[in-house]
Design a protein around this nucleic acid. Sequence first.
DNA 1: CTCGACTCCTGTTAGC
DNA 2: TGCTAACAGGAGTCGA
Length: 261
Amino acid sequence: MPEILEIELYRRSIEPVVGRTIAEVHAPDPWFLKGGVVAAQLNDALVGAEVSALRRRGKLLLMDFVGDGPVLGLRFGMTGRPFLDDGGPLLELEYSSRRAHADWDRFALQFSDGGSLRINDPRRLGGVELDPDEDALGPDAFELTLARLRTVFHGAAPVKAVLLDQHRIAGLGNMLADEVLYRAGVDPARPARSLDDSSVKAIHRAIRRVLPELLERGGSHAGRLAVGLRVPGARCPKDGAELLRRTIGGRTTYSCPAHQR
DNA sequence: CTCGACTCCTGTTAGC
DNA sequence: TGCTAACAGGAGTCGA
């Protein structure tokens, strides 16, 4: 599923839209439009606008326009993929179809140079928003400092739930959160405020290492606690203990009872 | 404010 | 073979 790494790869791959001008907006699926915006408003706001930058904050992709144009927010949910200029898919996603039926195109921008940007999303968990509230998101996980991380672990919620809370840290999804805690040696179920400073430091170190490493290896599925191990009965590659499968923070969670404490 | 429970979406897959 | 039910997780809402 797209987490921060996949969104960053998406951002890089569709950066060629910078400098292009939007000629048409296709928004055939009202469900896909978020924040109460309707197709006609998107049309008014975007047609004729020239893309000036493509940014990312957490899992939110942001398209800026020249002048005082709007900001277009793109979310890919669990199964969304961008297609630029009729090129092939950038990535295959876990838990999603490898196909890309035209029926699943939920949103598209047609550019004046003839190219296009489509969002294909089988399960419709992504969405498009005009002028999204960027500050509702915490700091981007790539920019996360130790000082900032120390401030988020204050509540009674499980540490994993905190890592998944996009208001506190933006970008980590289910697989990355498991991977980070696996490497940090921290039990995902531990109440956040019970962490001592060495555990917080270990989590910070794991985040700083995991993101660049897995970005280079192609995405969040490439971790040590990876897809092949996220099955019942799998054993920890580190010490051979049978991995625990639990639901924490409402998400399927794998962890090692031997070295995650 | 915090946090867990619940809801939404639908293609894929396991199991009968 | 054909069907059903469970499953996946990002994000928003609601109530205690």
